[in-house]
Write a protein that binds this DNA or RNA. Sequence first.
DNA 1: TAATGGGTATGAGATTTCTCATATTGTTTT
DNA 2: AAAACAATATGAGAAATCTCATACCCATTA
Lengths: 221, 221
Amino acid sequence: MKQIDSQNLFEEYWEQYHFDQFFGFDIRPYTSLLAFDPEDVILQEGTKSNHLYFLLNGRAKVFITHKNGTVTLVNFLEAPCFIGEMEMVNDQSACHGVTALRACLCFSIDLSCKAQLLQDTVFLQNLCKFLSRKTLSDVQNYSRNQAYPLKTKLASFILLTANNGLYRERHTETAAYLGVTYRHLLYVLAEFVKDGILEKTPHGYRIVQEEELKQIADGDI
Amino acid sequence: MKQIDSQNLFEEYWEQYHFDQFFGFDIRPYTSLLAFDPEDVILQEGTKSNHLYFLLNGRAKVFITHKNGTVTLVNFLEAPCFIGEMEMVNDQSACHGVTALRACLCFSIDLSCKAQLLQDTVFLQNLCKFLSRKTLSDVQNYSRNQAYPLKTKLASFILLTANNGLYRERHTETAAYLGVTYRHLLYVLAEFVKDGILEKTPHGYRIVQEEELKQIADGDI
DNA sequence: TAATGGGTATGAGATTTCTCATATTGTTTT
DNA sequence: AAAACAATATGAGAAATCTCATACCCATTA
C-alpha cells in the first residue's frame, strides 16, 4: 500500500465519482489517494481502523475466517463503494477482512472527522443506501448459494464475469466465492466443456453455447 | 394483523425500548401499535410498503423466493429491530419477505414523515447501526452455513435455541434456516439420538451430553 | 541452481445432502 | 364426521460435494 501524490489523478477520480455529493461538508482536507497492490490487506480482520475507504478502481474481496481455519468469501467489492463503514458507525473492530484482488485505488478518509461525519445527514443518508445495497448483494449471493447446485451458480457467475465471451477468472477465487471446493469446481467446469457449452483455450474458457448457459443459470436445467 | 388501541400497552413498550431515543423529533404522532398473528405477512416480497416497523416482541423470519420456487430463509428477526428500513432508504419495493413466526407486536411508523426522517441525524445514525448489525448477523449465519456440515451447524443451533436443556424448535423452520432439507435434518437429529447426545421426549429433545454437543458445535468432531 | 509456493489438473473413494415415496398424527376446514 | 392440511417420521437410491493423493507448470526465493 502506498500513497499517491499525483494531484491530477486525485482530481480525476474526485470528478468521476462526484465525491463531493456524498458529503454535506468539505471532506477534501481529510482525503488522500491510496494504491493497494493485489494481496494487500485493506482491512485486517479483528483490528480497528481509523480510516474509511472508498474504492475507486479495482476489485477486493470480503471474507471471514472461521475457528476451524476455513475462510469464507463473503463477497467481492467493486468500485464504487465504501469500505470500513460498518466498523465506523458501530465503532468496533473489523468483523470481516478485506483484501485487494487486483490493484486497487481508494480514497482514504481520516476518521479524525468522524464526529462531523456522524452529524452529516447527506453522508448518513448515503451510508444507509450503501449499507442496504451491500446487505442486499450479500444476501442475494448467500441465498443463491443455498438454493442451487454449483452447476447453476457457476453458469450465472460465468455469464456475469465473462468479457467478450471469454471467462478467465481464477479457479481458486471462483471456488471460494461459490462456496465449493476447488476440486468440485473443476468437475463442473469439465462437464460444461464435455457438453460443448464451453471451450477451453489458452486464454480462458470461451462461451460456445450462450443460450444453453443462460438456461442453466436460470435453473431451467 | 390488527391495530391495538390499548394506550397502556403502547406506553409500556414505548418506555421499555426508549423509543424516543431513536429519533431527533417527535415520532409519536406517526406511530401506532400493531399485532401480527403467526403466519401473518409483515412485508410482502416485491411490493412497496408505506410503513416502517419496529419489532417489539415476537419472532419473524426473513426470506427470499427464488425463480425456481425454492424459498431461502435469510434470517430470523428478534426484538428489538426495525423492519422495512432498507426499502425505505432506497425507496424501493421489498426485496425480502418478512412473515411473523410467533405473535408479533410492532410499532408501525407512517412514512408520511419520511422526508423528516431522512433529515434526522439521530435516526439516520441509529439506522446505520441497525443496518450494519443486521448485515453482520446475516453474513455470519451465511458464512457459517457454508463452512460447516449440518452436524456442526445443528449442534450450534440446538445450543442457541434450547431452554432448560430442552430443544423444541419446529423441524421445518430449523431445516429452512440451516439451509438443508427436512429429510436430512431428521437424519442428523436421529444420529445425535443414536449417539446418546440427545434424548427424544414428548416435550422435545433433551440435551444429554452437553459437552459433547459443544465440541461438535465448535467443529472439533 | 535448487527449493518453495501458488495455481492448475485429474483420479478414487467417502461423506453429505437431496429426491421421491409412503405413513402417521394432530389440527383445521367443510 | 369426513376431508384437507401441516408437521413428523422413515426407507431407498441418487446426486452433489468433499477429502486426499498425486502431478505439472511457473514464478519467486534461498
